[in-house]
């Protein structure tokens, strides 16, 4: 589903935070990428989510080589990947209600008509009541906002879901609840998962296999 080959990426070409890293996520597979904070794994997740252009290396998504990132990515590739980040408040427009937040990807791809049905379908799955859907981010807890961000990531039914420290700020019960939502979606859709995090116990319980960042990436041995 996802193939990252010898990716080098970062914010300063002289000091890339990702150096020559390779990683494979098979169809329907759940891979946990485990590493300490600040190691560059989030940057790799952004590359995989088509949000950050690498300096070198190749990426294929469902067999097609990726040629553009961010707004240069073709729509069918962009919509094939859903992503959830660690801090919901940084990735949620504070002016939107949770309902509008969830619907955002549908609107921006011209599928406005599907909004009511799709939001009605997703809200109960992530545990958001009709009343919560009308609130704005400042009026809900981190856990509630992250539920909305997960629904947003699923709204286009992506074939690949990327969760970058999705639960790092959340309590045990909310963590288990959100992971259950992801797994229910994967079971029904066959989607693949790249879960990036620092919690070994969590990723090992959640994913089919986990790969460690540290040791191997310097030697450009494939991580998968």
């Amino acid at each position: 589903m996802l193939e990252l080959t010898r990716i080098t990426a970062g914010y300063d070409r002289r000091a890339p935070v990702v150096r020559d890293v390779s990683l494979i996520v098979g169809h329907g597979e759940a891979v946990g990428l485990l590493g300490p904070s600040g190691c560059g794994k989030s940057t790799l997740a952004k590359v995989a989510a088509l949000l950050h252009r690498p300096d070198a290396g190749t990426m294929t998504l469902d067999g097609t080589v990726v040629r553009g990132w961010r707004h240069r990515a073709p729509q069918e590739q962009r919509t094939a990947v859903g992503v959830v980040f660690q801090q919901p408040r940084l990735s949620a427009d504070p002016r939107l209600s949770l309902r509008e937040l969830i619907a955002q990807p549908l609107r921006s791809t011209g599928r406005r008509r599907e909004v009511p049905a799709r939001v009605a379908e997703l809200a109960p799955l992530v545990g958001l009541s009709a009343e919560l859907l009308e609130r704005r981010p400042h009026a809900v807890s981190d856990g509630q906002l992250q539920r909305a961000c997960l629904a947003r990531a699923l709204v286009l039914r992506p074939g690949l879901l990327i969760c970058d420290e999705m639960t790092a700020m959340l309590d045990a019960s909310t963590t288990a609840a959100l992971v259950a939502v992801v797994e229910a979606y994967r079971a029904e859709s066959g989607a693949a998962l790249l879960a990036v995090g620092h919690d070994r116990v969590l990723l090992e319980r959640w994913c089919d296999r986990t790969v460690r960042w540290g040791e191997r990436n310097a030697e450009s041995v494939p991580l998968g």
Binding site: A172, S173, T174, T175, A176, A177, D199, V201, R205, W206
Partner: peptide, 17 residues
Amino acid sequence: GLLDALPERDFAPIPGM
């Protein structure tokens, strides 16, 4: 419920919020 939700235990959420 909180303890049971841990990934090293049942990994089962408490229903609701």
